[in-house]
Amino acid sequence: MNHNAVQLVEVPFPLIPNEDWSWQHDGASVTVTAKPHSDFFIDPSGEGGVAAESLMNAVAVLGDPPTGDFTFSARVGVDFRDTFDAGTLFLWADETHWAKLCFEFSPDRTPMVVSVVTRGLSDDANGFDVDGREVWLRVARQSGVWAFHASVDGERWNFVRAFSFGPVSSDVRVGLEVQSPTGEGCDVTFSDVTFRSVALADLRDGS
């Protein structure tokens, strides 16, 4: 057992850090400060990312979920400082297949739900603005298809996107990631982190 693993009451598997970093956790919540100038992003142009270069150096904790359908959710609060600061729910298959659902600080200095799916190169899709510095995020897996949802109250969920990783979908790990690609770091709190072995009635609705 990794003694640095993040163990949460509502998550039935440990979340293992991708590098030596301080993740504070108390059973249901996790607090962490993003590493300066860090991100996971491979610019779709193949030349340079949003922070002037593609980056693959952010800190994350990841675990292996059980087989079958599930949801993984958290309330995410970010002390935004610089553009693209974010706390994210993170999916990882390998270095060319991963995705994240982000609560991120936009170039207009507006908190926003953003999603990125990487299959060789990353895409980058804005969801919606958030009035405040906290939002609920949710990842769902259903029969090899992934869905991202977000909520401003933790009850009514807004569909963000659905996608597939193809053949590597069965090997995807799930967890948390924090980033500060243009800044010196930001403080992020993940609370009410919850894993449920359930299937949603409809991946595209707000259930």
Results as ranks from 00 to 15, higher is better:
149 H>N: 04
92 W>E: 04
170 S>R: 12
139 V>N: 10
95 E>P: 01
142 Q>S: 09
115 S>E: 10
165 F>C: 13
166 G>V: 10
137 L>D: 11
103 F>H: 02
123 D>E: 14
155 E>G: 01
105 F>V: 06
122 S>K: 06
145 V>E: 10
150 A>N: 06
128 F>I: 02
147 A>G: 06
109 R>T: 11
126 N>P: 05
111 P>I: 07
124 D>Q: 13
98 W>H: 11
152 V>G: 05
100 K>H: 13
129 D>S: 15
146 W>S: 01
154 G>K: 00
143 S>K: 06
123 D>W: 13
152 V>W: 01
104 E>I: 13
159 F>N: 08
121 L>K: 15
121 L>D: 03
155 E>F: 02
129 D>H: 12
91 L>W: 04
93 A>P: 03
124 D>V: 12
170 S>Q: 13
104 E>P: 12
162 A>I: 05
97 H>R: 14
117 V>T: 09
107 P>T: 04
128 F>M: 07
154 G>T: 09
167 P>F: 10
125 A>W: 13
119 R>V: 02
125 A>K: 15
168 V>K: 03
140 A>M: 00
127 G>Y: 04
149 H>Y: 07
114 V>Y: 03
171 D>Y: 05
149 H>M: 01
164 S>G: 13
158 N>T: 15
134 E>M: 02
142 Q>R: 08
100 K>W: 06
107 P>A: 01
136 W>A: 06
165 F>E: 13
115 S>N: 09
106 S>D: 05
114 V>W: 05
148 F>M: 07
93 A>M: 06
114 V>F: 07
106 S>T: 04
157 W>S: 05
150 A>T: 04
122 S>R: 07
111 P>K: 11
170 S>W: 03
143 S>V: 10
137 L>C: 01
151 S>E: 01
150 A>F: 08
142 Q>L: 07
171 D>N: 09
155 E>D: 09
144 G>Y: 05
158 N>Y: 09
92 W>D: 04
122 S>D: 04
97 H>Q: 14
171 D>T: 10
129 D>R: 15
116 V>Q: 07
109 R>S: 14
139 V>C: 11
142 Q>T: 12
98 W>S: 11
108 D>Y: 01
165 F>G: 11
101 L>H: 08
162 A>H: 12
102 C>T: 02
168 V>D: 14
163 F>G: 04
123 D>K: 14
141 R>F: 12
142 Q>E: 08
142 Q>D: 10
129 D>T: 14
143 S>C: 08
146 W>I: 00
148 F>D: 03
